[in-house]
Amino acid sequence: MANPMKIRAAVKDGVTEVKVLMSHEMETGQRKDSSGNLVPAHFITELTVVWNGKTVLDAQFGPAVSKNPYLAFKFKGGAKGDKVVVTWKDNKGDSRTDEAAIA
């Protein structure tokens, strides 16, 4: 399984800003190794962010996203101490879920 995501969430004036740094190789399937063989595609395909049981972000990724993707977004609502849960799945069936408390 991949390294934990780095998640920061903070609320200000009723709007929560979430910043996520995901650890993932994000291989496109088009790069060749030193032997000239294609490196198999391995990238995040789905990302979901849930706050208080409500999905606040649902995204689909593809091979064009860079290695160790960074994502920042805002949503209305949230209070200090609430949990934000981030889950990704990739094209090889791997997944990771991490959470952070809103500051």
Rank of each mutant, 00 (worst) to 15 (best):
L57M: 12
G62P: 01
R96C: 03
A2L: 12
K67T: 12
L57D: 10
E17Q: 13
T45Y: 11
E25N: 12
K54V: 08
R8T: 13
L57A: 10
S95R: 08
L47T: 01
N37G: 02
Q30V: 00
D94A: 08
R96W: 13
V15C: 04
G93K: 07
Q60I: 04
A101I: 03
K54E: 15
K74R: 11
P40S: 05
N68G: 05
K19T: 07
M26V: 05
D58P: 00
E46R: 09
I102C: 07
S23Q: 07
A64E: 15
N52Q: 15
A64S: 14
K67L: 11
I102E: 14
D82W: 13
A41H: 06
A103T: 12
L47V: 05
N3Y: 15
G62A: 08
V84E: 07
V50D: 12
E99T: 06
F75H: 04
V49C: 07
V15P: 00
H42I: 00
K74Y: 09
Q60E: 14
V56H: 11
V18G: 00
L57W: 09
A103S: 15
V86R: 03
K54G: 03
S66I: 11
V86K: 05
S95K: 10
E99N: 08
P63W: 06
V86P: 07
N68W: 14
N91H: 08
L47W: 12
W51N: 10
D82G: 02
A103D: 15
L57P: 00
W51S: 06
E99I: 02
T45H: 10
F75N: 01
V49N: 04
F75C: 04
V20I: 13
T97R: 13
K6T: 11
P4L: 05
P63A: 04
T48Q: 15
D33I: 01
V84T: 04
G93R: 11
D98P: 01
E17H: 04
K54Y: 14
D33A: 02
V85F: 07
P40T: 01
N68A: 05
V11D: 10
K83Y: 14
A72C: 08
G93Y: 15
T48Y: 14
L71F: 12
A72S: 14
V85C: 08
